[in-house]
Nucleic acid binder design. Structure first.
Ligand code: ZN
Ligand code: ZN
Ligand code: ZN
Ligand code: ZN
Lengths: 159, 159
DNA sequence: CTGGTAACGTTATGCAATAGCGTATAAACT
DNA sequence: AGTTTATACGCTATTGCATAACGTTACCAG
């Protein structure tokens, strides 16, 4: 089950929840129990999570959630900048630095499925320049790089 | 119905079909009637086209196509590099320069829905540098910039 | 004309997302 | 406290996107 890049992941989860708590309080948004549970599920690892997997997990936990329940929670979490959608996977990933106003750029390993969020200034600048050159006013961007992460390159045999 | 950036679009279509013809012949791939018809439909404009719209059009043209028929044709066209999928729209767009080995970067106008394929060297370089810095081996990229195109910015009142 | 392969048709199903409506509940005001 | 209002949540149903699995046809090589 190992994370190759081993770390105490419970800290990731706790930090994410605490940050969410803080931001929502600050903004007067309601971080309800359902929303907290779903954010926690998304943070179970560093892989993107699918909506129907969340549904299944909710079902396991006793309740009887239906699709709109999950999608509404995801919409809320996205509006608050707590999670991002990975368009090329139809899946959702927790944002490691919510609050910062930032664009999302992702490295997605096709072997171990780990998703890493980038913040490359050079990349951001290049995007803005490309848009400027075409007189194009950017409102949002989808930037998803698929390939093989450093770990999976080392451990060739894995997966 | 106007293209704002008016041009003789029949030339776009003819060029695309001719190029497809040429490339497939060169490669020994079979550019069948169905595939040609679907490529033509996708090239009806510079907007991305949805799979089920293609289905509907095929139905109109008499036949009784089912989803797999369309998706297989799309898969073929994508493998040959003749069309690209826009992940953030679940839709498909013709490639204006198939044959060139290239990555795909798109400007997508949320007003008029026009999709423009970019080839920014600076952007390509920035992507590669970002990946290199993380020791990440890129295999494919999804780079879709949404916003408002130059035309739609001029014609504020439109749409 | 026979056997192989690729394309296409057909049926069915699975996963992704939303529509529309009703109910519960929490904040905000009187 | 009682009323109002907005928000969250539950539920049923439907739509949209995509593929599985299998059968049939077209075509080419031997
Ligand atoms: Zn972690
Ligand atoms: Zn990996
Ligand atoms: Zn054109
Ligand atoms: Zn436009």
């Amino acid at each position: 089950m190992g994370h190759s890049h081993s770390h105490d992941h419970s800290i990731c989860i706790e930090t994410a929840i605490a940050e969410a708590e803080r931001l929502c309080a600050e903004r007067g948004s309601r971080f309800t129990d359902l929303r907290r549970r779903i954010l926690k599920m998304i943070w179970q690892g560093h892989k993107a999570v699918k909506a129907y997997d969340l549904l299944d997990q909710l079902a396991t936990e006793g309740g009887s959630a239906k699709p709109p329940t999950v999608y509404r929670a995801l919409d809320f979490l996205m509006e608050e900048g707590l999670v991002h959608k990975i368009e090329s996977l139809n899946a959702y990933i927790g944002c490691p630095h919510p609050g910062d106003n930032h664009v999302s750029q992702f490295l997605i390993c096709d072997k171990c499925e780990t998703v890493k969020e980038l913040s490359s200034d050079e990349l951001t600048t290049a995007v803005m320049n490309a848009a400027k050159q075409a007189n194009f006013a950017i409102r949002r961007q989808t930037l998803e790089l698929h390939g093989v992460c450093a770990n999976c390159q080392r451990n060739r045999e894995a997966a």
